Amino acid sequence: MTTALRRLFEPLIENDDYDRSFIWIGNDGYSVCFNPNTGRLYGALWYDSVETYHPTFYVSVLDAIRIWHRGWLSRASLCAFPRCAIELFSITSSSMEQAQFHFEIMLCNASIF
């Protein structure tokens, strides 16, 4: 019985390293973060030319509600339905690489991935 269940669910079991792959595409003004293995878009990061970067995360409606209950949510949009585009904070940074690093930390801390 156990082996039959394992064979049934084995395609659904994923390696943690597989899930947490981040690839950035863009330039110093705008970039997007996604997982190359699954094709999932995690979010976007844009620069307002005053050393402030604005991250937008794309999450499910349930994740948006969970993040809203934690008090982290500053703005949400359903334009990307069935995903929600949420803004949590602005990042003050001197480079896009540093802002991307902070974005990835927030993805992991908020369990968005």
Rank of each mutant, 00 (worst) to 15 (best):
M1Y: 03
T2V: 00
T2W: 10
T3K: 09
T3D: 10
A4K: 01
L5H: 04
R6S: 06
R6I: 06
R7E: 07
L8H: 14
L8P: 05
F9W: 07
F9L: 09
E10F: 07
E10M: 04
P11D: 06
P11V: 01
L12W: 01
I13P: 09
D17T: 05
Y18I: 00
Y18H: 09
D19P: 02
D19L: 01
D19C: 03
R20N: 02
F22P: 04
F22V: 02
F22W: 00
F22S: 13
I23L: 15
W24C: 14
I25Q: 14
I25H: 11
G26K: 05
G26T: 04
D28C: 09
G29R: 11
Y30Q: 02
Y30A: 01
V32R: 14
V32H: 15
V32G: 11
V32W: 10
C33T: 02
C33N: 14
F34T: 03
N35K: 03
P36A: 15
N37P: 09
R40L: 06
L41M: 15
Y42Q: 13
G43I: 04
A44D: 15
L45S: 07
W46Q: 11
Y47V: 02
D48Q: 10
V50S: 11
E51R: 08
E51S: 14
Y53D: 13
H54Y: 00
P55S: 14
P55K: 08
F57S: 08
S60G: 12
S60N: 07
S60L: 06
L62I: 06
L62V: 01
D63Y: 05
I65P: 02
I65E: 02
R66L: 02
R66E: 07
W68H: 09
W68V: 00
W68L: 07
R70D: 06
G71F: 00
G71T: 02
W72Q: 03
W72T: 03
S74G: 11
R75K: 10
R75S: 09
A76Q: 12
A76N: 05
L78R: 09
A80W: 08
F81N: 02
F81K: 00
P82I: 01
P82R: 05
R83P: 11
C84Q: 07
C84Y: 08
A85N: 04
I86R: 11
I86D: 12
E87W: 06
E87D: 15
E87R: 12
L88S: 10
L88W: 03
S90N: 07
I91G: 11
I91F: 13
T92A: 13
T92F: 06
S93K: 08
S94W: 01
S94Y: 01
S95T: 02
E97M: 01
Q98F: 15
A99T: 01
Q100W: 05
Q100K: 06
F101Y: 13
H102Y: 08
H102Q: 13
E104N: 12
E104G: 10
E104L: 08
I105P: 00
C108R: 12
N109P: 01
A110P: 03
S111Q: 14
F113P: 13
F113D: 13
